[in-house]
Design a binder for these strands. Sequence first.
DNA 1: TAGGCCATCTGGTCCT
DNA 2: AGGACCAGATGGCCTA
Length: 154
Amino acid sequence: PAALPAVCRLVDSTLINFVSDMNLMEFPPKYALAPKQQVDDTPTSPSNQTRLNDSSWSRDLEDGVRAEHVMMGSPRYYGTHGHTRSKRRRIITVVQRQAANVRERKRMFSLNEAFDELRRKVPTFAYEKRLSRIETLRLAIVYISFMTDLLENT
DNA sequence: TAGGCCATCTGGTCCT
DNA sequence: AGGACCAGATGGCCTA
């Protein structure tokens, strides 16, 4: 850590310019509700309280046969993460699903905040276009490698 | 118009 | 039981 100021002085001035030219503070206006997302985030409608099943878990059909995914959504594939675990599916209410959607949006929001913070830390040309998430990650890898080499060679 | 990027929804799995 | 995390699917927006 003590060597850092010295390292910074050694950093090529063009790199410093990259950093100072960063202007990624603008927040994408997309966080406004999208048209398809106009569900009620504070669901209180009694009709939404209906449980789809008595238990919150339902057992799939016997003997390893994949149960049909009768609920809405895209098809899933078992074994994506290596092993098939339980055959019990959690059945949730519409209210619970909406609450989970809200939590997921918040989670992705904080993830994007972290990406924005990383974009500000990573040196870049005065981009007319902001870095995508994958570009940000890859540039960060290169940047860290560069700084690591710099530290080791001084 | 095709392709890249992103937000969102969704269900499965993990974890507390 | 339920929240966090994850990845697939989908649709919208933007740019070359």
